[in-house]
Nucleic acid binder design. Structure first.
Lengths: 98, 98, 98, 98
DNA sequence: ACACAAAGTTCGCGTC
DNA sequence: GACGCGAACTTTGTGT
């Protein structure tokens, strides 16, 4: 537990260039977690951009993007679940007269 | 269980003005759930609009809306938790030299 | 502009019972915005709870909550849009052989 | 515009193994958009998993994950904006006596 | 078209 | 061990 709940700093002397001294080795681990995460988030963001590009292109080609997303979501789910939900949706719609 | 998982409709004869007949009394219950929910959602939407109005007014008065939201979020939380997190945030920032 | 961007406090003397003195009348307006918003959010939360209760009851009665939500979402949209999307969905599914 | 808004199918003859015939070349483009997106989403999901792993490890090492996320969010923003917001937050808190 | 805000969905947590 | 609760993230809609 590098920085436990009840931690009390003995002093306020830490300055920004002494980071490594805070909590001993812990500061390095912390920095590592942060930087690795930042790198992964950047990659993830790039992928999101790629997906957006594809959708923009699809839209330009005359497709309905929202419907394409629906297709993708359906393909992610178990066919049996999809079927059952669509059946129920039909039943409910009829039940309330839609 | 009005519309159980393995339900098989006996026929496809239901038309929209026979809603009540589908699943017996169940159609009425279903309609009730739906309509009550719709009413509550409308009220909720109205409240969201009211909040938005307040924030617009605050902004006109020169306040920073994002910071007001932070204040509100802080006030929702336990003071002890807020204090602890802010302390940790300080410690971590120093540790990595921010 | 009560607390403009370049504001510099003249001192750090403010204590919690002098709130009204900070920025003159502005502190009262700020408090008002915050408290009104908090009240509205509480009401909104109560409504969310009511909706959840309805869904819990619906589930107990054997309904599929997810499908009920779908129904509500469909009813919110323009019938023409719903129809068009469902048609497109069908077309796309056939196109890719689903 | 492969599947334009006002499209009327001339018939309902399409069957699932004739996908390519629907809208001519368009079906292939559609399939391509979908499959490319699915691949990218899978990669994105993997990255999310990696981030989650890091956070789990950080937690095991005694760090407060929520605070680490705060750090990352702060680092994403312009230092000047961060500084200004923190200053305003202080001012507002004092103003309402927190 | 971009960014912000709202909604829905999913994941982890505490409880029973 | 499962269920419900709450928080986090993702996606959708809106307003500039």
């Amino acid at each position: 537990m590098p920085f436990p709940k009840n931690h009390e700093d003995e002093n306020g002397q830490f300055t920004s260039d002494e980071g490594a001294a805070v909590g001993g080795i812990a500061a390095d681990r912390l920095r590592s977690y942060i930087e690795r995460t930042e790198r992964l988030e950047e990659e993830r963001k790039a992928l999101s951009g790629d997906i957006k590009d594809i959708m923009t292109e699809a839209k330009s080609a005359g497709f309905n993007v929202k419907v394409i997303r629906q297709i993708i979501n359906i393909r992610k789910r178990e066919p049996a679940d999809v079927e059952e939900q669509e059946t129920l949706l039909d039943i409910y719609r009829r039940a309330i007269g839609m």
